[in-house]
Design a protein around this nucleic acid. Structure first.
Length: 307
DNA sequence: AACCAGGTGCGGT
DNA sequence: ACCGCACATGGT
């Protein structure tokens, strides 16, 4: 059972598996966390700067007042029993194996605007550069929360930065998408009411935004709206679903919808485990479980993507 | 120097 | 509705 206590402005969550490196850095669901070294991580989440320290049976947060607890319960998805996730896919041994291979991986529930912008930037881009671009746009246009630590720019702040400035930051052709999407939100796009819509409706609404296709929409739905059916299909997930589940002939969108039928209301959570097992090489392209020990060295930076 | 990165917009069928 | 291609940027 998860327990949370507070002592001198520090909250300690205990009684759970939490792999901070995997969840906050390697999993590429958030691009805001910084590995400060050792067991320490930091981020600005919404308008709160927070430092997280990984512990044997959970983590601690500083600063954190009693009032902050419900917020972080939601953010770290602490109300959910990840031990029950396997039940949703008992018909699929590979999926079950993936879940069991990555204890401590959780799916964060992040601020929706920040997530939308982050994943527009993520399109056809790599994780290291996504991180740098997110950091840059926060540093240049977001409010400074504590010295050197900036919040995400608001829609207005991002819009006012101007497309040429975003291009100079290195956004490439996405600079235009960011401006267009900021404009739409300023003009009343109902981003903060989407969480109350059914999955399909929210998906259709998100597709209206510039720079948002099926994959980015699903990421926003899964990582921010709490719509855990959403099953984002990128190149990794497309490849693994085709190879592990015989979906060679399926389009990405078909895979996404079929996955909801297979894994149910928490399909998106299952997706995270499949995604990382594929990336880490714990399961090979044909769907054979290799395991952590004899897995090849991953072809991407896991511990220190920086510079 | 091609090719890749948690894809999308666009114009053609 | 589906399909192919171009698209900035920086790293191998």
């Amino acid at each position: 059972m998860i327990d949370i206590s507070i002592d001198e402005g520090r909250a300690v969550a205990s009684g759970l598996y939490f792999d901070a490196q995997l969840t906050l850095i390697d999993s590429a669901q958030s691009f805001s966390w910084v590995h400060e070294g050792g067991a320490r991580y930091s981020a600005v989440v919404g308008d709160r700067y927070v430092e997280l320290t990984s512990l044997d049976d959970g983590f601690s947060l500083y600063p954190c007042t009693p009032n902050d607890i419900p917020f972080f319960m939601d953010y770290f998805d602490l109300r959910r029993d990840y031990g029950a996730l396997g039940g949703a896919c008992h018909n699929y041994p590979v999926a079950l194996a993936a879940i069991n291979l990555l204890p401590g991986l959780r799916v964060l529930k992040q601020p929706v605007w920040d997530t939308l912008i982050s994943f527009i930037i993520s399109a056809n881009n790599n994780v290291g550069r996504i991180r740098r671009l997110v950091a840059a746009v926060c540093r240049e246009y977001g409010r400074e929360i504590t010295p050197g630590k900036h919040a995400f720019p608001t829609p207005r702040q991002l819009y006012d930065s101007g497309e040429p400035a975003l291009t100079r930051l290195g956004m490439g052709y996405r600079a235009n998408y960011l401006i267009e999407t900021s404009r739409a939100v300023i003009d009343g796009f109902p981003l903060w009411t989407l969480a109350g819509l059914p999955y399909d409706q929210a998906h259709r609404e998100l597709l209206k935004l510039k720079g948002v296709g099926d994959k980015v929409a699903d990421c926003v739905q899964l990582f921010a709206l709490g719509q855990t059916r959403a099953f984002p299909v990128d190149v990794w997930v497309g490849r693994l679903m085709r190879g592990w589940f015989g979906m060679e002939e399926y389009s990405n969108r078909e895979i996404s919808l079929r996955a909801i039928d297979m894994f149910g209301d928490e399909a998106g959570l299952v997706q995270q485990f499949l995604f990382h097992c594929a990336r880490l090489g714990f399961i090979d392209p044909e769907g054979n479980v290799v395991g952590k020990d004899s897995a090849p060295v991953p072809p991407f930076p896991t511990n220190s993507e920086q510079s």
